[in-house]
């Protein structure tokens, strides 16, 4: 079996298991895994820009917040768009669209900045958008807005969101697989490795960077909207959260930035540590996350996948030298 079919088989198996799990899982673990799906999907979306093209955004929380507030205001102004689960469809898609359009507008100036300047400019974007939502009365970020629960009668909310976020994670993952294997993905890699050379090889760098940025923002915006539904009542501080921005980077870093599975593996590891092992210290959440981040970057700069690969390389080198010695 080729590695490709193995990968597909494993993915399908995991999806099946995930689909059946809530049948006998208690509320606590359902909630933890629901959070895992949400966080992993965010990390996967961040990775399309940050991992593939090397433009690390430190402010992707802006799109979570913008997505959530877009959905809430859309429902308040024009809604409701039906009831039950289907009522989410229009607001969530619209939220993604709004974030995508916003990203497209700011993309041209902001993607001309490279490296840390881009990173910090995005931090600034999130800060400013959050501030505006909080202080401009029309947005009601300070007082808060409601979103009607779409959970069908008789279903536990955590199970409902478990499936929704699970589906979104699968969607994000498939999109990132498609991106990676297409010209688009190669363009982004080339940009990450050396933007000037990429241009010299005929890569329309500007266009691909903007596409990656818009795609990433759209996905995060949709996730933000669903998150808004799952919270129900939103203020600025429930969605425009710096730790969201940090987490997206950290999950990718820990799993292996720019890889397909890295963001998901990284999220799993971090959430297992913070939510399960250390669940009693939730008010020290940031402290623990920060400590793990620092430790991991210092110990494994390439993330888990990087560490695994270098281990494998070492052992295969070793095997080669043993073989060479045996041949002598």
């Amino acid at each position: 079996m080729s590695s490709r079919t193995t990968a597909i088989a494993i993915t399908v198996l995991l999806v099946l298991v995930a689909a059946l799990l809530p049948l006998w899982m208690g509320p606590f673990f359902t909630r933890v895994i629901q959070l895992f799906f949400f966080s992993a999907a965010l990390a996967v979306a961040w990775n399309i820009l940050g991992g593939f093209s090397g433009y690390w955004s430190f402010g992707h929380a802006a799109f979570i917040g913008m997505g959530a507030f877009s959905a809430a205001h859309l429902v308040a102004q024009l809604g409701p768009f039906g009831s039950g689960p289907w009522s989410m469809v229009v607001p969530v898609l619209a939220a993604g669209l709004i974030c995508g359009v916003f990203a497209a507008i700011i993309a041209y100036p902001i993607l001309r900045l490279r490296g840390i300047y881009f990173a910090i400019a995005m931090l600034g974007v999130s800060q400013v958008v959050g501030e505006l939502v909080n202080n401009v009365r029309w947005f009601q970020g300070g007082t808060g807005v409601f979103l009607q629960s779409p959970v069908p009668a008789g279903m536990r909310p955590e199970v409902f969101y478990y499936y929704i976020f699970g589906a979104l994670l699968l969607l994000g993952f498939l999109i990132s697989v498609a991106v990676r294997n297409a010209r688009f993905g190669y363009a982004l890699f080339a940009i990450r490795e050396d933007e000037d050379t990429a241009m010299m090889l005929g890569v329309a760098t500007e266009r691909y960077k903007i596409m990656a940025f818009v795609l990433s923002a759209t996905l995060v915006g949709m996730l933000g909207a669903v998150y808004g539904y799952s919270v129900g009542y939103l203020t600025t501080y429930t969605v425009f959260r710096l730790d969201f921005s940090l987490n997206m980077i950290v999950f990718c870093l820990i799993g292996g930035i720019g890889t397909l599975y890295g963001p998901i593996i990284g999220t799993a590891i971090m959430l297992f540590i913070t939510q399960v092992l250390l669940s009693r210290f939730l008010d020290m959440h940031l402290l623990i996350t920060g400590a793990i981040v620092v430790t991991i970057i210092l110990l494994m700069p390439g993330g888990v996948i990087g560490a695994f690969n270098s281990l494998r390389r070492k052992s295969s080198d070793q095997a080669n030298t043993t073989r060479a010695e045996a041949a002598r």
């Binding site: 959440h285 620092v294 970057i297 210092l298």
Partner: peptide
């Protein structure tokens, strides 16, 4: 051990810790 960008993330992480503390 890592890179300048990683140091950016490290200082971000430490900032979170300190803020929490």
């Amino acid at each position: 051990r890592a890179s300048l960008v990683a140091s950016l993330v490290v200082t971000f992480g430490v900032a979170m810790m300190a803020r929490n503390a």
